[in-house]
Amino acid sequence: MLGDRQAQYQLYKLYSKAMYNVSFRVTQNEQEAEDVLQESFLSAFKNIHSYKGTAAFGSWLKRITLNNAINLVKKRRLDFESVEDYGAYDERFDHEETDDRDFDVNQVKKAIELLPDGYRLVLTLYLIEGYDHKEIAEILNITESTSKSQFNRSKKKLREILKEEFQHAG
């Protein structure tokens, strides 16, 4: 039993920071992110027998954390339908953006935090968590084309925020 606990603590030390950040990016709330972290590690340790070893442990844990965080936020405020209500994305307006400035991690991070829930989620799942649109569609229970169009809209919105909030900086 003691050996189990030590092994569990090693896994916690290895993955807790990354999982906490995954959770925080979804919930945008420290307390909720901690609750999700606690719930996710407990679920993972209690259900370790259902880990089939087909994916890395970190990937398996990340899916548990993401699902818990998304479920929590969905219950409270997130409404994906409202994100889809903007209508079909018109690809004709999807032209290449030219960025004539250098970016700063802190500024981009703050700008991401200012994105609406649905936009922030799709953008971070794709660019930071590293999922493709097929996986995002599965995680968020939306279509792949919705994931792609939301991603394009969220990038556009992110640029607007960066321009408005940090145009005089750096």
């Binding site: 920071k17 906490y20 925080f24 420290e30 992110a33």
Partner: peptide, 13 residues
């Protein structure tokens, strides 16, 4: 993307 992981959970967790 690694630099976006700046938050740290409290020890109580």
């Amino acid at each position: 993307k690694e630099q976006f992981d700046t938050e740290v959970p409290r020890a109580e967790v």
